[in-house]
Simulated assay, not measured.
Amino acid sequence: MNGITLQRRHGQVSVHWPRLAAEQLFVGRTPAEAIALAPQLFSLCGHAQQLAATLALAAASGQPAAANPQALAAVRLEAIRETLRRWLLDWAPACGQPCDASAIAVLARASTLQDYRQLAAYSIFGTEPAIWCQYGLAGWQQWAAAGDNAAARALQQLLAAAPEAPPALHMLGNTAALAAEPHWLAGHYPSWRSQPVETGALARYQPLLQAWLDTCHVSAARLLARWLALAAWLGEAEAGSDSCTLAGSGLALVDTARGPLLHLATLGSDGHISHYRVLPPTLWHSHPQGCMAQAAANGTAAQIQRRLLLIDPCVSFTLAGIDNEEPPHA
């Protein structure tokens, strides 16, 4: 997929994502061929993409669609690994913390849930994830202020950062709820009730983090939400998945590190795929008036870079016209 370009001129932000709809390669193929092809087309979150394709195509054909435990376990480990990778390689440096080469080497060798638990306890939580989750919002704020490890110091830096306007958030329901109000599918960029929304971990944990959102600590809340999701996956939570039919098509939802991944599939009378659409979380977030555009509406290039890294689009992004733009006058 091509990268996203954000440009700011005179305080107005444009978002351009010339997304190559690779899923169009599914059209004309059999469901089995598309399911085998999915992880090759989408190297990022390949297990989630393959599961979503499996569920959507089963629903489209009128067959029972249920994820098997092995597929769900693979999606769960994939989400855990991606979250740890993003923390070690991108979020930590963006928040002024050095890259931890030893932790990165451990991540490269990790393969089991226990491997990831140990790495997360060392590189983020400073204790068992389940214990850390019990701190609560005031406890996490105290943990950040103490600054005992890089993760705590990163969170504290975000709490001290310039305020950001809170984005519109919406936790997507199950596929039946989505099918009941299919207006979100109307445009190139999905939206909820005509409003661009953020659908990832921050939307899921909004009630818990509302106090930080009310005080405009948006990036701090966003990072904390990702860690809460990570802790849940490292505990007892499984990756969520769901499917249903929508106007004769199959709709599937699979949770990923970045948020809900949606696949919509239609079969022709010959049993081959006649229409296919993939809606990754980034497609919600890159809406022309969405959270990425909002993050770039003010601030320096460095501030915007960090905000966007924490939104975590699934493709690269470029900032244009921001370094040289004159800051707004009072």
Rank of each mutant, 00 (worst) to 15 (best):
L230K: 01
R8Y: 06
S61M: 05
D255T: 02
A162P: 04
W132E: 14
S14A: 14
A220T: 09
E198H: 06
N324T: 11
L37K: 08
L279M: 12
Q12V: 15
V75Y: 13
A186S: 13
A186F: 06
A53C: 00
H272R: 13
A177Q: 15
R19F: 02
Y116W: 07
A239P: 00
A56C: 10
A179T: 09
P328S: 10
P167S: 14
N324I: 03
Q63D: 12
T112R: 07
L319D: 08
S61Y: 15
Q305W: 05
G28P: 00
L223H: 05
A176L: 07
A74E: 11
E326G: 05
E33V: 05
A160F: 15
G271D: 07
E326K: 09
Q118L: 15
Q118M: 14
L234E: 02
H217P: 12
L172E: 12
C216P: 00
V15G: 08
Q289W: 03
L25D: 11
D323S: 09
P328D: 13
G46V: 02
L20I: 02
L253S: 05
H188K: 07
C133K: 13
L310P: 03
L89N: 03
W143Y: 12
F26D: 11
L228G: 06
R29I: 00
A211C: 04
S123A: 15
A48G: 12
M1N: 08
A151Q: 08
A103S: 14
L308C: 01
L251T: 01
L159D: 13
I104V: 05
S191E: 11
R193Q: 15
W227N: 08
A21P: 01
T318K: 07
G147L: 02
N68V: 11
L72A: 10
A265S: 06
I4Q: 04
V13W: 00
H188V: 05
D242W: 06
E128Y: 07
R8D: 11
P18E: 09
S43L: 07
T175W: 00
Q134R: 13
G11Y: 13
T127L: 13
W140K: 00
A161M: 09
E325M: 10
R277A: 09
R153S: 09
I273K: 00
A59T: 08
W87K: 03
A108S: 05
L57C: 13
D255M: 05
G259F: 06
R8P: 00
Q70A: 14
R222C: 07
G268Q: 15
T83P: 00
L209F: 02
G235E: 12
G321I: 09
N174Y: 05
G147P: 04
P64D: 15
Q157H: 04
Y189N: 12
T175N: 06
G46M: 02
L309G: 02
A144D: 08
D214V: 06
A211Q: 14
G321H: 08
A65C: 11
P129F: 15
L6H: 01
A56R: 13
D115P: 01
Q195R: 15
D242Q: 11
L37V: 10
D312E: 05
G235W: 12
V15H: 08
G271W: 10
G290N: 03
R85A: 14
